[in-house]
Design a protein around this nucleic acid. Structure first.
Lengths: 233, 233
DNA sequence: AAAATTAATATGTAGCTACATAAAAATGTC
DNA sequence: GACATTTTTATGTAGCTACATATTAATTTT
């Protein structure tokens, strides 16, 4: 048991956060300099610096050189989501995972896919459609396009056995990713594959990845009715 | 012009990331110790440490004391979303913001709301329903419950003038938040208020906040058709 | 051989110094 | 007064030391 009351940077962060919460430092206010806070609390400036960095990262304060640290007037809620490979997601829920390949063919990219990649002209890419199942019930329907220029190896993968999702995540790291969420209405074959009532609302995750400037893949993953995405705490 | 090729921690991070991308360090592999990397690249261990922390934060590697640093075998896509106050969101799109109060009354919390707060028994709370408009078109319909025990001041706020969203964000900082996304079908008054075709799919953001262990507010925000949420790059 | 103890080790953290850098404030010039 | 230049200042970063802490690995004990 050490009797020293040495402050850790998380202690400092929590104290400063508490002061923001109880309005000692109100929205828009400028906080004291790191060094002054350090002196007041009896720790080093580096410790305060680390605490402040964390508060800035979480969106509570804004820091600027020479300008100092300000409590954000319009705090944003910042939420982080983990999007694991579908197999894991299913298995983590304690369900049995299954996978079915629906189609696999070279096609010309439609306008929507060009837009996602930021392409000027259409290209030939591998389009893979597949269904992921949880306990033998449809879970996620994915419609994927893979750039065979950046990823020719995909052509040799037996996609009936291994999902493109898994193969790509394991074998094709990306340097940039774009993720967006939306909702669509269940219609036609989408509704059929997901066994969703016609007209029901479906949650959609759109994910596009690049390596450097080169497109790798873009997927539209449509979840079965009732799907909910929860932020990391 | 300094001729020193002193490495910054972001340089180190990028170099290590590049090695993971190009399979020098493959998924599941253990990376060299921070100190060895530091020596190899010619910088201090602290610099490597900072770089590694960042890679761990972004989900690329996992670190454990004594265990070392490992490339994650099943990398997750980690995406961060900023959820600003609705006024800002609208104005940032260059649209004119408007707001309409629909109803405001004390009610007993239904089961769904109890669940969101984790309450055992129902409670009386202030229920506020309101519509946010962008360029005079429905944008987001919010159905909010405010705990008047933790937040009695809300009762004195003129909610016809200021949205509860804005007042709470500005005046009631929270210490914990739960965010989740889903999709629902447009029906009844929801469809009416949002001027959405019956049966169309609507994107839903559910946000619940606490201060310490005390509930503050929970909102279900239903967006007009076509809404898309984009991750921060 | 199994269990308990001890040692070794990689990451985590705090504090210090020194200097870099951006931006505001002060000053000087026309 | 308007504009350009210099100074000041608060945060940002790199490197060092020293020690904390969580685990694994090795050793001893039963």
């Amino acid at each position: 048991m050490t009797l020293d009351t040495r402050l850790s940077w998380t202690d400092v962060r929590d104290q400063v956060r508490a002061r923001i919460l109880n309005r000692t430092y109100a929205p828009g206010d400028r906080l004291p300099r790191d060094e002054d806070i350090a002196q007041e609390l009896g720790c080093a400036r580096t410790t305060v610096h680390r605490a402040m960095q964390d508060l800035a990262l979480s969106g509570l304060v804004e820091r600027k050189r020479k300008g100092g640290t300000h409590v954000r007037a319009d705090p944003v809620t910042r939420a982080t989501f983990d999007i694991p490979i579908t197999r894991r997601e299913v298995e983590d829920r304690g369900a049995k995972y299954n996978y079915q390949l629906i189609s696999r063919e070279m096609e010309q990219t439609p306008r929507a896919v060009m837009a996602r990649f930021g392409l000027q002209a259409p290209a030939q890419m591998l389009r893979v459609r597949a269904l992921h199942l949880a306990d033998n019930r449809p879970y996620i329907l994915e419609d994927r396009w893979v750039d065979t220029t950046s990823t020719p190896e995909i052509l040799k993968v037996d996609l009936a056995q291994h999902s493109a999702n898994e193969w790509l995540v394991r074998n094709k790291p990306y340097s940039r990713v774009d993720v967006r969420f939306s909702a669509i209405t269940a219609e036609g074959t989408t509704a059929e594959y997901l066994a969703a009532p016609l007209g029901s609302a479906l949650f959609v995750i759109e994910r596009t990845t690049w390596i450097g400037a080169d497109p790798i893949t873009t997927v539209q993953s449509v979840a079965a009715p009732g799907y909910q995405l929860v932020a990391q705490s």
